[in-house]
Design a protein around this nucleic acid. Sequence first.
RNA 1: GUGGGUGUGGCCUAGUUGGCUAAGGCGCCAGAUUGUGGCUCUGGAGAUCGUGGGUUCGAGUCCCAUCAUCCACCCCA
Length: 438
Amino acid sequence: MAINAPEGTRDLLPDEALFWSRFKQTAAEVFGAYGYLPIETPIMEQTELFVRGIGEATDVVSKEMFTAISGENLRRWVEEGKAPKAKSRLSLRPEGTAGVVRAVVQHDLVPQGAAPAKLMYAGPMFRAERPQKGRQRQFNQVGVECLGAEEPTIDAEAIIMLMRFYEKVGIPRDSMRLLLNSMGCEKCRPAYREKVRAYMDERADELCETCLTRAEVNPLRAFDCKNPQCASVMAEAPKITDHLCDECLEHYGAVKALLDGAGVAYEEDYKLVRGLDYYTRTVFEVQVDNGMGSQNAIGGGGRYDKLAEEVGGRPTPGLGFALGFERCVLALEAAGVQFPRAQKCDLFVACVDDSVRARAFALVQECRDAGFATEMDHQKRSLKSQFKLADKLGAARVAVLGPDELAEGVVTLRDMGTHTEAKVRLEEVVGELGRAIL
RNA sequence: GUGGGUGUGGCCUAGUUGGCUAAGGCGCCAGAUUGUGGCUCUGGAGAUCGUGGGUUCGAGUCCCAUCAUCCACCCCA
């Protein structure tokens, strides 16, 4: 019985794996221009970090984490019946922010009064959800986090650079929708949340069951209920933007003004309520409709001014976003964007017969050492087959080496594009390739 | 966690009301006279029809179970 990849996981085969590394490289270039530097945090963290950081009540934490118990604790659990302490449980990261903030706190990357720390990461995240289109149990994200500054310019530049990145990787701007909202802060949100709860209680008989529980646990989440009846009820609910405190209103206004100034179009969406508890003030999401199934957000993020404190650090405002690689691939495919070819081959060395293989092998090595992608046949195929192979590899040139050439100390160098051939001395092949590139 | 769909060579599919050696396309390999590609033509290799039971003279085709996968709910990137 063949074993396949675990449910909800996927292999990135060469073409896509190559695209993934280019994707990351593009991110490093674009975000690097805004001062973001790479950080690599562990793929697993203590479960406690996610519980405290993301919020115990969120779905991501309460039912979507892959949690393991380390060996010693497992032994004690089995042998002594002692349940493992939460502190010694490990979870695969369901998102990137918590780990980065933990690292920032742990290494004090934002000393008091310092300039903000701008960090970016790329790698796999894990959520034990039921897979569907655009949703896997292991998926790749690229994200950024900026800690230590609460000014709206941070929010605006992050959003601008996110949109620049999408365009750079080839997602057409007109296929994307940028949604913007403010979630308020610790001063104004609790009061607003109670207003919404009271409103929902008034109209409880018109709401679906899940919204009734939402009213208890997190009323704001009811805003993105897909039930049409709930939607129409919630459309008349008090809007957060009408209940922001002066500071939040000013912050939100400043972010919008900066985006306007940069010519970045957005839609204000009072229904945009993100599912992670740590968000405050600015939240945003980028959606694509074409080809996305029901998972249509290719990226999203927001401000989280209380998160550092939640995980035990000093008060440190923060803002970040994450974007999903696989979802971007879906968006690109729907937009008809072609993936760059993975194959690159500068030279293919073809052997006319077996007597020249050793010299051909040496020539291939010389060319590779000089930095040229070079390939040869290893299976003793006919010359004709070797040409077919060279063509398939997309070789720019083929060097034919036979007994005749070997006797003369040359190679017949064929340009596969122009179909022209010339004799080149064996020791000058590398030089000739170099000239061809110029 | 809940619901629905699907599972045929590497990939995409055909397979009629169950009936002769499971078909086609792509891909792969080899040829089309003398040391050479992309097009075309010819030939070839490759499938225990997801797995395990059952019904039947006989099942890829029906039933049950199981696994995998997809889509949707939910949630999010």
